[in-house]
C-alpha cells in the first residue's frame, strides 16, 4: 500500500485526508510523503483498526503529539507504514480535535501496546483523560507534580512559577 492508496482507503471510509510532500536527494530524487487524516474523537479506535486490517504489515506507532488550539486541544497520532522497501515508507498522522471542556478519548493501548508511554505522557502534559488506559501513573513528571498544571497548554493551566534561573541570568546574575 502506498500513500495514495492509503488516502483512498481513508476517503472511502468517510474520512477527510490529504498528502503533503517534500523532495530529498541530490542525484536520485525521492519524495517523502506524509498523509494527514482528520478523525472524530469517537472514531479513533475505528481509524486505527482500518489501518491494522488493510495494511500488509502491523502499523508502526511513532508518537502522539499535541498542540493547544485555543478552545481545543489537537492530538496527532503519528504512524509509519511500508518499511523494508526502498523509498516506499510514508507517515500517517491521525488528527483528533478535543474541546477543552471534554478532554476525553478512548485509549488505543489495547490495540497498539506501544502507545502506552505516549498516552501517559499526553495525559500528564496536556491533561487529556484516556479511557481504558491500563497504567495512569506519571511518565516523565515527578509523582508530586501539582494537579491541574499542564506544561504543554497555552492557557491558565500552563505552569507559571518557572524560569527563575533563566531570569537571573538575564539580569546579569544575582
Amino acid at each position: 500500500m502506498n500513500a495514495e492508496e492509503a488516502m483512498q482507503m481513508f476517503k472511502e471510509a468517510g474520512y477527510e485526508a490529504w498528502i503533503s510532500e517534500r523532495e530529498a536527494g541530490v542525484k536520485n530524487k525521492a519524495k517523502k510523503k506524509s498523509l494527514w487524516v482528520k478523525v472524530d474523537k469517537e472514531k479513533i479506535r475505528e481509524a486505527v483498526e482500518i489501518m491494522i486490517e488493510n495494511a500488509e504489515e502491523y502499523p508502526h506507532f511513532s508518537i502522539i503529539s499535541a498542540s493547544d488550539e485555543g478552545d481545543n486541544v489537537e492530538l496527532n497520532y503519528h504512524f509509519t507504514f511500508g518499511y523494508g522497501k526502498l523509498l516506499e515508507e510514508f507517515v500517517i498522522s491521525l488528527k483528533v480535535s478535543l474541546p477543552k471542556n471534554a478532554l476525553r478519548i478512548k485509549s488505543i493501548t489495547p490495540i497498539i501496546p506501544a502507545a502506552i508511554l505516549s498516552e501517559r505522557e499526553i495525559r500528564e502534559m496536556v491533561g487529556v483523560e484516556f479511557d481504558e488506559l491500563p497504567d495512569k501513573r506519571h511518565m516523565f513528571l515527578t509523582k508530586d507534580f501539582p494537579d491541574g498544571v499542564y506544561p504543554w497548554r497555552r492557557d491558565e493551566t500552563a505552569p507559571k512559577e518557572t524560569n527563575k534561573l533563566y531570569e537571573t541570568w538575564k539580569e546579569g546574575g544575582k
Binding site: A24, V26, N28, K32, G82, Y83, G84, L87, E89, F90
Partner: peptide, 22 residues
C-alpha cells in the same frame, strides 16, 4: 530481523543517492 531503517525507507538529505540497505 525487521528490515527497518529510515535511510532506506524514507531517505532524507542526500541519502537517496546512496541506496542504503537495512
Amino acid at each position: 530481523g525487521v528490515k527497518k531503517d529510515v535511510r532506506q525507507d524514507m531517505p532524507y538529505f542526500a541519502y537517496p543517492d546512496f541506496e542504503v540497505k537495512a
